[in-house]
């Protein structure tokens, strides 16, 4: 799950930025010549720039090895397929039951306005999503690890009953379906 990691990284890095601002604010009252401050600050800025580049580049490149866009095409032969259509304000599914442990390809579209198909597990944790757009089919591949009743919620504002747009997808144990 990326959510917990995202929160931890945000706390750490925002905390570091905050510490830098508090440090400077706390020492701002005693004046020193600007040329002296600048010389030191510009030297640190060079290190700071390269630190960000050296930290950010590997993360950026590594995360892009896991792009979700072509997974559906790669898994087409072995996958279970569920066609999902968004309507104001309900989902229609070609089938409401799939098996865990095997890839599922969701072919997602909309009959009216933009919707967003968000898949929530039984703990109401968002596990994957894609947009549901009129005139387009977005293909999302996802392999359920755990059986259970998953909920499809709408994640793109689609009108005044947007929050009511929900469906249940039953995920059965591997081999049972």
């Amino acid at each position: 799950m990326y959510q917990a990691l995202a929160l931890k990284l945000t706390i750490v890095f925002v905390g570091l930025v905050m510490a830098a601002f508090i440090y400077v604010a706390a020492r701002a009252g005693r004046r020193r010549e600007y040329a002296e401050v600048q010389t030191r600050a510009y030297r640190i800025r060079g290190y700071w720039f390269w630190l960000l580049v050296l930290l950010g580049t590997p993360v950026m490149l590594y995360t892009m090895t896991r792009l979700p866009y072509s997974l559906a095409a790669q898994q087409a032969g072995q996958a279970q397929t569920v066609r999902v259509t968004g309507h104001q304000w309900y989902w229609s599914l070609s089938q409401d039951s799939v098996a865990a442990g095997r890839p599922v390809v969701f072919e997602v579209t909309s009959a009216d306005v933009n919707h967003g198909m968000g898949i929530y597990d039984e703990n109401m944790r968002l596990v994957a999503q894609t947009q549901a757009m009129p005139d387009y089919i977005n293909r999302l591949a996802y392999t359920f690890k755990q059986p259970g009743d998953y909920r499809l919620l709408c994640l793109e504002y689609c009108g005044v009953a947007h929050h009511n747009m929900s469906a249940v997808l039953h995920v059965t144990a591997a081999g049972v379906h």
Binding site: A6, V127, Q129
Partner: peptide
């Protein structure tokens, strides 16, 4: 910009977009 950059990471966005 920190939580913004994290959210703009595609694999993260798939679990955070429109939350």
């Amino acid at each position: 910009v920190i939580p913004a950059i994290i959210d703009a990471t595609i694999v993260v966005n798939q679990q955070m977009h429109n939350t």
